[in-house]
């Protein structure tokens, strides 16, 4: 069995294990009873009301973690190839800051309502994220050509602009609102605001965008040769860039709107897996989806269990992923294996 296959088997087993553990761990219902309840739920059985509530909360949160992991890892992989920059992550186009400003605005203005199942925070975060990306596109596109260099620079500037808008909002609102905004900016799956309907909708968007990115795996391979060579090998480069950046941005914006900007998944997962899977994007994107989902699910399970066990406030999962991700990235860099 070669290294690539072994990696996929390990990732698959890991993901299954963490999903199973997440579903049965936690307060309210013991592991054995939880396991029976989950099996019964998936078999289409009816659970008693109290058991059902506990399990649904856990599975919703697990579902959100999986959406976030899949979206960020696949978007990060695609952006690194398209922008031809190893530092690219899903937030490099200003999505986190744009989404953060939208969420901050909705929070401090105390906006109610929203669209369908989604709250004003979700909607404005999504709108802010896409506004930031569109601003970068408008700046970087001239005469029918989207310059990825200009897009990178524009993304950083748009991000800086929205970050200062967030700070401006924070500077003028009461401390209670500041804390709410601050928690959102760290990226959190613990919020009761995450409902099964929202997770289902987000999952649909992520699966759709992820599917398109998988179909674009071979063009992503071509982009590593530079845009001119990709063009001469038969790729419609301009159409491709719009499609791939659009899918990556949409997937990222939808999970940011759901759970805030959870950091480092989008940069660590592709780099770590490229070392074992190799540079070809079809296996890499597939592995990144599994690995990203597993990483966020593990992180969320850990922060949840430690909070229960030590009876401390829950650490936002975004803090955990960055705490683990940054040193891991530095270790890879040190070995120059990326």
């Amino acid at each position: 069995m070669n290294r690539k296959v072994a990696t996929f088997v390990a990732l698959g087993c890991g993901l299954f294990a963490v999903c199973a553990a997440s579903a049965v761990m936690g307060p309210g219902l013991g592991p054995a009873a939880s396991a029976r309840a989950v099996v019964k739920l998936f078999a289409g059985g009816v659970l008693p009301a109290d058991g059902y509530a506990v399990i649904v909360v856990r599975l919703t949160r697990l579902g959100a973690a999986l959406c976030v992991g899949v979206a960020l890892a696949m978007a990060g992989t695609s952006l690194q190839a398209t922008l031809r920059n190893p530092l690219a992550d899903p937030y490099i186009l200003g999505i986190a800051a744009g989404g953060g400003f939208g969420a901050a605005l909705a929070t401090v203005l105390g906006l109610g309502g929203g669209v369908a199942a989604f709250s004003a925070v979700n909607v404005l975060a999504f709108a802010g994220a896409l506004t930031a990306v569109m601003a970068g596109f408008v700046v970087a596109r001239a005469a029918g050509i989207l310059s990825v260099h200009a897009l990178l620079l524009a993304g950083v500037m748009v991000g800086a602009f929205f970050t200062s808008l967030i700070l401006l909002v924070m500077a003028v609102v009461p401390a209670r609102d500041q804390h709410a905004v601050f928690l959102w900016l760290m990226g959190d799956l613990a919020s009761p605001d995450i409902t099964p309907v929202k997770v289902g909708f987000t999952a649909a968007v992520v699966v759709l965008c992820g599917g398109v990115l998988l179909l674009l795996a071979r063009p992503l391979d071509l982009m590593a040769l530079g845009e001119e060579s990709a063009f001469h090998l038969g790729l419609s480069v301009e159409k491709f860039k719009i499609l791939v950046l659009g899918c990556a941005a949409l997937a990222t914006a939808s999970v940011v709107a759901l759970a805030g900007p959870i950091g480092f998944v989008g940069i660590v997962v592709p780099h770590a897996l490229r070392r074992v899977i190799g540079p070809r994007h079809l296996p890499l994107l597939a592995a990144a989806a599994i690995g990203g989902a597993a990483l966020v699910a593990v992180g969320d399970a850990l922060v949840r269990v430690t909070a229960d066990y030590f009876d401390i406030p829950i650490v936002p999962v975004g803090v955990f992923t960055a705490l683990v991700g940054a040193p891991y990235f530095l270790a890879i860099l040190r070995k120059k294996g990326y």
Partner: peptide, 16 residues
Amino acid sequence: RRAAFLPQYSEVNLPY
């Protein structure tokens, strides 16, 4: 399918 192009400098960003 009809024409190939060999540039002066080629980049290959990933270790294919």
